[in-house]
């Protein structure tokens, strides 16, 4: 399963990253056991919020996270989690807190996003959209 692979690869390959993730995990409890957090958050999101989240994803993230190795986010995550597993829209194990943490703090070559360009309310909607994945049909750019 993706989550197991995610953690084991992180520990095997990238110690520095692992410690960042560990502290994030401890601090926020972001990687819940068995994906219950995902199930709970997905149920609460309205179709309007999902559509808004999708739009924000396209505006802010897709240039690095669209499917395909020409997108640096997807490429980096494929190197981490395995080929074909790099696209954020295909993930079934993201949680709002996890997304929020990385968007506000950045990691690797992904710089953090400023509140002035993506405010907290927008980030909440965006994070809920991603947490309700997978989204097989990501919207057009």
């Amino acid at each position: 399963m993706m989550k197991a692979r995610f953690m084991s690869e992180v520990f095997a390959g990238r110690c520095a990253l692992a410690s960042v993730l560990m502290s994030a995990t401890l601090m926020l409890g972001i990687v819940g056991a068995g994906g219950t957090a995902h199930a709970a958050s997905a149920a609460a999101v309205s179709p309007e919020a999902l559509e808004k989240g999708a739009r924000l994803f396209v505006k802010n993230c897709i240039m690095c996270h669209e499917r395909g190795m020409d997108n640096p986010g997807t490429a980096a995550l494929s190197y981490l989690y395995g080929k074909g597993k790099g696209a954020l829209a295909d993930r079934d194990n993201l949680t709002p807190d996890f997304v929020r943490y990385f968007v506000r703090n950045g990691r690797g070559l992904m710089p953090a996003f400023r509140t002035g360009e993506l405010n907290d309310e927008e980030l909440k909607v965006l994070a809920e959209y991603l947490s309700a994945g997978p989204h097989p049909a990501t919207p057009e750019k």
């Binding site: 990238r14 990253l17 240039m63 020409d70 997108n71 490429a75 690797g108 070559l109």
Partner: peptide
């Protein structure tokens, strides 16, 4: 046509900047 592909240069090494 705007894109972000060139940021991939930093994927050359882990934690690349």
């Amino acid at each position: 046509i705007p894109n972000m592909t060139e940021y991939n240069v930093m994927n050359w090494i882990p934690n690349g900047a």
